[in-house]
Design a protein around this nucleic acid. Structure first.
Length: 678
DNA sequence: CGATGTAGCACC
DNA sequence: AAACGGTGCTACATCG
């Protein structure tokens, strides 16, 4: 028998870089009784008390396993390390992950252990979870009792605004953070040994870890049967990569953030004042988000603005950014409604930026000397450890949370990337695929005009710009007059609208719906564009037909590993939405390329001390390197990474191009690489 | 008071 | 019937 282990941990929450720690660990061999380590949690501090020798014992057991199976390995490894365990580099190669396998086998279905155990093993572990939830909820109520507090003190159960638990939000299912509680209650109140509070968490935990191993073994077999194992082997490598990205984290400058925050707060307050004055006393304040009744009254009754769309759910007229921007384009700038709308839009943007910054401050940690191997502690350099989930979407995109690193604003005037950047002694480089999701269907379908564009970015009149090409189709007179300057001349009008429409089309807008035409501000625009790009239209048709027959689409075939199947969601009538198949196919293929790139990049930078990948924003990777002695001196490494990323194109037979940017100062600012470096 | 849903905004 | 793909976070409204 292979010495294998199904492993699982329970923790006091997800913030393992902050105050959360594991309090229960188990190894299941499939044959003997499971090994369990269960530790007391101090109810006043949430600190976990680990007896001497336990970690060493766990390490021995991990060492003994030639293969390990986890559900979301990255999390459990981080939990163990946060407790003080020394995770050995070569253990990564032994790790299997039922979460990754679950996504590969059924991308569109839930991948939680309960669902998968039922589906693959016909084992229902839900009752154990329900029993635990009930016990924890009871205990959370109990320890908040006045009498209980008088007798046992104020217990630190999970709630929002606890600085050590920045990811604990009001809407979160916080009972999951207090699974240690029933046993702590049993202990403190000296319940009889037969009471379920002693064991309810352990029972739940043991069925969890009990199914992990057989589930993993079965999934491996199915992957092999379906010819998907090579894909899985590549995806497995992401575990170590993401683990290391998260560990290193993302640095920002607190001073810059605070300056920017103060500026936005002031501007938002000013905008609010302007709006209140224009409301003629009808508004006492502006809602911080959404639209109040009073505000709708002002906009639609007093200003007589025309609604452009209505909420699907409530039927109320929308006052969202598309609507505000459309109004702004129509209204005279000096008019009452014009000024109101502009200030409302500006206030909302600044409120959003401020709320993001508050989120960063809540999650941010001061860098300890050990983190950067430097003798200084910089109080202004803060590090975030956003979580990346490679199975977080129905395609192959990652999701990111706590905080989200993938939605950091880069808009003019709201560029929060200005706050982010390298710590002293470091420098950032970002590498992004050029037009990744346009290139894929263009080359796959053989769309000649687009291929020509991508092959010759130096040639006029479009200079590689797809938006300009479409602009010319829609506005030939303007383009004839201004050429590439249309980008500037019609920056916030026709050119911006062309971009908006292009994105709508790229993401699957159907001609019949008129969605793209609205975005383009040109009637019949999508039809005219379609007539020019018939090859992609044909590819879309084929992809829809395939999805209708099979219920999934494939990513483009990787020469070595095959294609990743992506289940296509269905509408309420069980039919394929026509907007989905090509979108998934392209998005999935793009992200398969990124996955390949991350693996190759990691293989390379692993040999370079203190070089890190720190962010992935779908088609962009950000690297954090030691600052070179000569400005730009790291360029050769970056060129190597660029070619490694472009190699993904060879895997699928499409030429890909990667651009790079040098950020010695901050993420918003790209600096020229001095010629001497080249 | 907590849970749930909605609107709105940020990213690609 | 609907027709723009994939996300996360905050504030607000509503309901039990």
């Amino acid at each position: 028998m292979i010495p294998a282990g199904g492993w699982d941990t329970e923790t006091t929450g997800v913030d393992l870089f902050h105050d959360c720690r594991p309090f229960m660990v188990s190894r299941n061999t499939g044959a003997d009784d499971p090994l369990l380590w269960e530790w007391d949690v101090d109810p006043l501090t949430r600190a976990v008390e680990i007896p001497d020798g336990d970690l060493a014992e766990i390490e021995e057991n991990l060492e003994e396993c030639s293969e390990t199976v986890f559900q979301n390995a990255k999390f459990d490894i981080r939990a163990l390390v946060s407790a003080g365990l020394e995770w050995k580099q070569d253990w990564f190669g032994r790790v299997h992950d039922t979460l990754l396998m679950g996504h590969l086998l059924a991308s569109g279905e839930p991948h939680d252990l309960t669902t998968m155990a039922l589906r693959y093993l016909r084992i229902d572990i839900k009752p154990y979870e329900d029993a635990l939830q009930q016990a924890v909820t009871e205990c959370r109520r109990l320890v908040r009792n006045k009498e209980f507090i008088e007798k046992y003190g104020e217990w630190r159960i999970a709630k929002k605004n606890d600085p050590g638990l920045p990811s604990a939000r009001g809407d979160e299912k916080l009972w999951k953070w207090d699974m240690w509680l029933p046993r702590a209650v049993a202990k403190a109140t000296k319940l009889s040994p037969a009471h379920t509070y002693w064991t309810v968490c352990r029972d739940y935990h043991l069925v969890d870890s009990g199914v992990t191993l057989p589930l993993g073994q079965l999934q491996i077999e199915i992957l092999q049967d379906r010819g998907l194992f090579a894909l899985y082997q590549l995806r497995r490598r992401l575990i170590e990569i993401i683990y290391k990205m998260e560990k290193r984290g993302v640095t920002y400058n607190r001073k810059r953030l605070k300056e920017l925050r103060a500026e936005y707060v002031e501007q938002a307050a000013h905008s609010e004042k302007v709006c209140l004055a224009l409301s003629g006393g009808k508004l006492a304040s502006l809602p911080k988000s959404g639209t109040s009744k009073a505000m709708r009254e002002v906009l639609f009754s007093d200003f007589k603005l025309v609604p452009l769309k209505y909420s699907d759910k409530t039927g109320e007229p929308s006052v969202d950014k598309t609507t505000l921007e459309a109004w702004m384009a129509e209204l005279p700038e000096q008019s009452k409604p014009g000024v109101f709308v502009k200030n409302l839009r500006g206030k909302r943007q600044r409120d959003t930026a401020v709320s993001y910054m508050d989120g960063y401050e809540r999650a941010g940690l001061e860098i300890l000397q050990a983190t950067l191997g430097d003798a200084v502690r910089w109080s202004d350099i803060i590090v975030l450890h956003p979580s990346l989930n490679p199975t977080g979407t129905a395609t192959l995109r990652f999701s990111s949370s706590n905080p989200n690193e993938q939605n950091i604003s880069k808009q003019e005037g709201f560029n929060l990337r200005y706050c982010f950047g390298p710590a002293p002694g470091r420098e950032w480089w970002s590498l992004d695929y050029e037009n990744l999701e346009l290139r894929i269907p263009a080359y796959e379908a053989g769309e000649a005009a687009m291929i020509e564009l991508f092959e010759h970015p130096d040639r006029g009149p479009y200079y590689g710009s797809y938006h300009l090409l479409v602009f010319d189709i829609l506005h030939p007179e303007k383009f004839a007059k201004y050429g590439a300057d249309c980008k500037k001349v019609f920056k916030s009008t026709w050119y911006q609208w062309t971009k908006n429409g292009n994105f709508a089309v790229q993401y699957g807008a159907q001609e019949e719906s008129g969605t793209a035409d609205t975005a383009y501000h040109v009637k019949g625009a999508q039809h005219r564009i379609k007539e020019r790009f018939t090859a992609i239209s044909e590819l879309s048709k084929q992809t829809i037909a395939f999805a209708a027959r099979n219920g999934y689409v494939n990513t483009m075939i990787d020469r070595e590993m095959g294609a990743y199947p992506l289940q296509v969601k269905r509408d309420a009538w069980g039919k394929i939405k026509p907007t989905v198949p090509l979108s998934y196919h392209v998005q999935g293929t793009a992200m398969w390329c990124m996955c390949r790139a991350m693996v190759r990049a990691q293989e390379y930078i692993a040999s370079l001390p203190n070089h890190f990948t720190v962010m992935q924003v779908h088609d962009e990777l950000v690297f954090d390197f030691p600052r070179s002695k000569l400005p730009g001196g790291n360029l050769p490494k970056i060129l190597k990474l660029k070619s490694l990323m472009e190699e993904s194109g060879n895997d699928i037979g499409i030429p890909l191009k990667v651009d790079y940017a040098y950020h010695p100062n901050n993420w918003a600012k790209t600096e020229d690489v001095p010629a001497v470096a080249v």
